[in-house]
Write a protein that binds this DNA or RNA. Structure first.
Lengths: 190, 190
DNA sequence: GTCTATACCGTGATAGAC
DNA sequence: GTCTATCACGGTATAGAC
C-alpha cells in the first residue's frame, strides 16, 4: 500500500463532507477546517472545488462501467449476471460509501464533465436493461416491464451507500446473498 | 378547487428548483427570476428560504405518517398492507414529485424542524418493519432479515419521484400493480 | 506546503418608496 | 404586492511571504 497523498486525503475528506451536506453546502473553508489547514492551502493540491467533485464522481462512474463490461460480456446466465451486478454494487459501495453519495446526489453539479458522466450512466443502464431483456427471452425472468424491474433493482443498489455504513456487521458476502435473494426471488412465501 | 395562493405558487416553483439543483444551490434570486419578480418581493409571502423548505418537507412527511397509520391499523393481511404502502408512495410521488425530491435529498438542511422530521421518519420505518415482522411470524413472508427487506422496498419507493415523471404513460394503477408484483414476488420465473 | 491578506462576487434578508 | 437600494456576511480563489 502506498501512503495516501495529500490530494487523496483531501478528496477522501471532501467526499465525507459532501455525503453529509451535499456539494453545494460544503465550503472550501469547512473542508480546510476538517483537514486542519487554511482554505488557501487546499489549492496547492487541487485545482478547484469542481476539480474535487470530478475526481470523486468520474473515477467511480468509470469503475462501474468497467465492472459492467466484464459482466455483460461474460457467458453467465442472466440471473447470474444480475447477481454479479449486485455484488459489484455492494463491493464498490462498501469500499467508498462517501463517494457513492456524490455519485448519486451531486452529479448535476458537474460542469465540463457532465456530458461524459451522463453518457457513462446511460451506457450502464442500457447494458443493464439488455441483460433483463435477454433473461425474459430465455425464460429465466418473468415477462414484466424491463424498465420497472431495472428501476426497482437499480434504485436499491444505488442506495446501498446510505445503508451499508449503518450495519455494524459488515459481512458483505451475506449482504450480497440476502439482497440477491430478495431482489430476484421476492419476499413472498411460495 | 380554490385558486393557488401566491405563497403556494412560490413553494411549488421552489420545490421544482430544489429537485433540479438541491436546496443549497438554489438562491432566492433564482427563485425570484422563476417567479418573474424580484427577490425582495418573495419575503411578502414567505418568512425565509428555510421556511419554504419546512413547508415542503414537513407537510409531505406528515402525509406519509397519516397514510401509514391507517394502513398499520387496518385488518388487512401483511402482504395487502405492503401493497397499500406501495400504493401510498405511488400516489404521493405522482402528485408531488418535486416535493418528494426535497424530502429525500434536502431534509438534512432543516434547522428547527430537523428533530421533528427525524422522529416522523423513524416512526414510519418502525411501523414498516413491524408489518414485515408480523408477516414473517404469520408465514406470509419469507424468513429473511426484515432490515434488508425494508431497505430494498423502501429505497425503491423513495426513488419513485425520479422515475414517475419520466414515464409518458402515467397509468398509476398499472405501475402500482407492476411494482407490487416485482417487489413482493421477485423477478425470477418459478 | 502552509500561512496571511485580500480581491471580487453572490448570498439571504431588510427598509422604505410607490 | 412589488420595487430599488442596501447591508453584513461568507463564497471561491489568488498573490506572495516564509
Amino acid at each position: 500500500m502506498k501512503p495516501e497523498t495529500r490530494q487523496q486525503e483531501i478528496i477522501r475528506v471532501a467526499a465525507k463532507l459532501f455525503k453529509e451536506k451535499g456539494y453545494s453546502a460544503v465550503t472550501m473553508r469547512h473542508l480546510a477546517t476538517a483537514m486542519d489547514i487554511k482554505a488557501a492551502s487546499l489549492y496547492n493540491h487541487i485545482e478547484s472545488k469542481q476539480d474535487i467533485l470530478e475526481r470523486i464522481i468520474i473515477s467511480l462512474a468509470e469503475t462501474f462501467t468497467q465492472g459492467m463490461k466484464q459482466i455483460s460480456e461474460s457467458n453467465e446466465t442472466c440471473i447470474n449476471k444480475l447477481k454479479k451486478i449486485i455484488e459489484l454494487h455492494v463491493h464498490i459501495s462498501s469500499k467508498n460509501s462517501y463517494g457513492m453519495a456524490s455519485l448519486n446526489n451531486d452529479w448535476m453539479h458537474l460542469e465540463s464533465q457532465l456530458t461524459y458522466y451522463k453518457k457513462l450512466r446511460s451506457d450502464y443502464e442500457n447494458d443493464f436493461k439488455t441483460i433483463l431483456e435477454d433473461g425474459i427471452k430465455s425464460g429465466e425472468i418473468i415477462h414484466a416491464k424491463p424498465d420497472v424491474m431495472m428501476f426497482s433493482i437499480l434504485t436499491t443498489l444505488r442506495s446501498l451507500y446510505i445503508w451499508i455504513p449503518k450495519k455494524e456487521v459488515i459481512n458483505l458476502k451475506e449482504l450480497t446473498d440476502d439482497l440477491s435473494n430478495i431482489l430476484i426471488n421476492g419476499i413472498a412465501k411460495e
